[in-house]
Write a protein that binds this DNA or RNA. Sequence first.
DNA 1: ATATAAATTTTACGCGCGATAAATTTTTAG
DNA 2: CTAAAAATTTATCGCGCGTAAAATTTATAT
Lengths: 343, 343
Amino acid sequence: MSGTKIRNMEEFAAISGISRPTVSKYFNDPSSVRSSTRARIEAALEEHDYRPNIFAINQNRKLTKNIGIVVPYLADPFFAEIARNLEEHCIQVGYRPTLYSSHGEQKLELEIMDSLRSLRPAGVLFAPLGRASNKSEIEKFCSDVPTVLFDSNLEGIGEAFVGSDNFSFVSQTVEYLTRTGEPPIFFEMKTPANPNANKRRIAYLQMMERLGLDPHVIKVDGQGWAFEEIGRNGALKVLGTEKLPTNAILCSNDRLAIGFLSACYELGIKVGRGADASLRVASNDDHPFARFTCPSLTTAAHDYESVSNRSVETLFQLIESGGRFKDRTETLFQARLILRDSA
Amino acid sequence: MSGTKIRNMEEFAAISGISRPTVSKYFNDPSSVRSSTRARIEAALEEHDYRPNIFAINQNRKLTKNIGIVVPYLADPFFAEIARNLEEHCIQVGYRPTLYSSHGEQKLELEIMDSLRSLRPAGVLFAPLGRASNKSEIEKFCSDVPTVLFDSNLEGIGEAFVGSDNFSFVSQTVEYLTRTGEPPIFFEMKTPANPNANKRRIAYLQMMERLGLDPHVIKVDGQGWAFEEIGRNGALKVLGTEKLPTNAILCSNDRLAIGFLSACYELGIKVGRGADASLRVASNDDHPFARFTCPSLTTAAHDYESVSNRSVETLFQLIESGGRFKDRTETLFQARLILRDSA
DNA sequence: ATATAAATTTTACGCGCGATAAATTTTTAG
DNA sequence: CTAAAAATTTATCGCGCGTAAAATTTATAT
């Protein structure tokens, strides 16, 4: 790079010997200019490293290159990993993602939508809180900004939904537990934060009926997103008082299971498949920490590579379609059973 | 809100009956206009919900209201919590934070700095990767953008550093372990990602010398930010082969400890303070998951309320000082020992 | 070589707001 | 009640770029 600092596109155009509008075209799409001029611009670029002012660009472009990514709870490593994945994809195709976390609070989710509106994003990848979401506000938002929902579906809202097939999670875990031992009891929060939880309970009930077995659902108290704490307290209460009808527990999700296992350990209840174990515990999600629980957690894994890939693909199709789809599509990916030591 | 959509400040000014420059002043600082005109503007604001175009603002303002927040690894809930805290503070005082994660990779950390430059932020709160950072590039960045480093110190870089006093972590855990039983062995990564790890090892050696005890440091293989995995594999190897000189382990950080405890469980090694336990394990950080390990983890907690508060305060002082401090300050907060079941 | 299409340049304007200076009005102090 | 101070209005410029229409050059085909 040479010494002279370039202030704007005008100056850069002068140096490269190309007119400013053509340089502007180049930055919006390098392949839209003749290869000879492209070469001249890129030569000048190596000499003087100039970058167009992002604010001026966004002010004038009809459609920005901004993408919003919203997750419900970033302190959950599962969402952090997905968000990272989504960010990467967006950057690769030349967009500027911005990451937001609702942190379990409706107020924050609303504020985020407010922020996003003023960013005039080309599109938004949105994993809503679920039960705590202000659905009519999200619906309004989606009618203003091209949005693909992921992870957590809000019926009819957004141009598309990409997530995991909750039935495939529960059917595999229930089938496995039943086949290899006693049928499971379903362990969940009384008022789950997330619609996936409801679908998983329904799937459990269906599976048990299909297998001709009596379902048992344990619902524990607790609100919010501190699932581990809720699972732990619930387990301490249940395991201390009730006599369980079978020796297998299926937690609605891994974070509850992490709490459940910590309670088992504290109560001296041996969990696992061995003969010395008195309880088997399985779960759903394959949380990043599921390999480090004691014992390691048998769980059904999200195909979150596919979920995030498809979410981004869908969003870019949406953007190219002008922000609207004719029909709202729902894409669900199958879970994969991961056998570890807890069941 | 009424029906008419407002396109720009001109239109809004006309409706509110105030001149545009005064409206502009209001949005930059509501207290800078007479209370009677403020009331008129706010009345109009309730009728027509207008918001100034963020891009036009940032293009023209000498100093934007953007704040960059950079953490090394967002999939670590510890950083997610801190980031949330920082974001909240920034928003409260009218700034617009944007969150970035380097995800353990130098390449990403560099790209983030690149993005941040074009955002022309008023200031940046930066927790660098540490060993994997390109220090000279970070130094360049800090000379362009007012930056406060936090969590992980790079000597002499940035206008200030706010973090935790590593000595106070280790001194408390070492003192406690020694007082209540055998002195600890220090367990860490061979090539730690973070400078805090080195300071903690040094603190351990100092404390042991001060107490007149023989230090023992176990360094396990592994690179990157998958600390749990590294701790687990290291523990499996060490516990399987070596005869430990004492029955107490002090892990450099909680994520290593999480892996260590999972290895202990798998090997059937009982961890805790009871007479039936053969090993005590303590650690540093008070990770959000430390309460759910088996057994729950005795650890020294960051005062991360204070760290995040002070980081933000320092940054705003820096911004008000025009982006430069006369002297670079380092602020360290003391740890607090949290006694749980593992030691 | 000529006609035609494609790419580029020129010219001109607009985006929405911050900033500033001078003129005017309103408020405050004496 | 008057002078000074403070706030507002008016007027105008500039920020850095996108975009569109018209004029011109260059490439492609006949």
